[in-house]
Design a protein around this nucleic acid. Sequence first.
DNA 1: TACTGATAGTCAGCATACTGAGCAATATCC
DNA 2: GGATATTGCTCAGTATGCTGACTATCAGTA
Lengths: 167, 167
Amino acid sequence: MTLETCLLSAETSVKDNNDMPGHLARRFQQIAVAVFLAEVEDAGFDLTPVQYAALATIKANPGLDQVTLAGLIAYDRTTITGVIDRLVQKGLAERRPSSRDRRARELQITDEGRRTLRKITPAVESAQRIMLRGLSAKEGEELMRLLRKAIAAANELSRAPLRDVQV
Amino acid sequence: MTLETCLLSAETSVKDNNDMPGHLARRFQQIAVAVFLAEVEDAGFDLTPVQYAALATIKANPGLDQVTLAGLIAYDRTTITGVIDRLVQKGLAERRPSSRDRRARELQITDEGRRTLRKITPAVESAQRIMLRGLSAKEGEELMRLLRKAIAAANELSRAPLRDVQV
DNA sequence: TACTGATAGTCAGCATACTGAGCAATATCC
DNA sequence: GGATATTGCTCAGTATGCTGACTATCAGTA
């Protein structure tokens, strides 16, 4: 930070960007997405972080409905519609009407989806390592612990909180 | 995590979401944005985190061009266009052709923008506190230190890296 | 059974973010 | 000076994420 910038910042008591957790959150997320997409593309796949999390959660909870899926990964219910659209369009998941509740849609992973998840896993894990490459193993663990703790305490402050649902 | 989910996850060696730094990054950013918007709206203003950072940086570096601004806050150059459009439309900033380089636009903050920044600062600082409310002061500092360190090591991995430019 | 409220999903609209392409202007090199 | 490369900015297209509104359905109750 230049001297000039420092003085101007002090004048309005606006902190440097690097002292704002919100700015650091945005930047880290930006890098995380870029690294994920690059690793997954290198592995020959076309799947976003959001689509990956949704697909993995559908696989782990076959037959769940969209609202439950959204709660398990903290997506907004209006966002999950488009994400599932794209998973279905790629042939990785299926959406069919629920027999128990005619409002709901039951989600299933396809064989193609299962194959994709299996083959993509190394790239996903590699991405997680790369985005922490500046930290030691211990520091990486500590970063995740602090993020989990901060997130848990503020979970209800977003429109799409995490919900622990029994499927 | 239920026993069933645990077993299914183990089967594919896919970790729990809470062990993925990428997922934690997304969630923390999601909360940070929600908290920021809520605090700013409570204070009677209509400004996003992205618009706030851009406006504060324009104020600290009067006359800078769009690419320089983007580099200072790590935005993509195609994103900054729309952000500035909205700041100009709200009367908080001005965009005029540069005299030195006819390709470039010089950015200035308006009096109204200065007034807004001044009045909005308490809400912004309050938001930063709220998003860390689950952490002690020491933990909050440590989280920011680790985020800064991880970000610095991966800065070049996104299309919109941070650039330290002398204006 | 009729009414009321809640819930599942979708849609329109807006604001980030990015990819890739393109235009105009500047910089560089021969 | 002129060809070439680079740079500043914009645009079209796609994918999150959200607000708010709407329909269809379900659940509880009078």
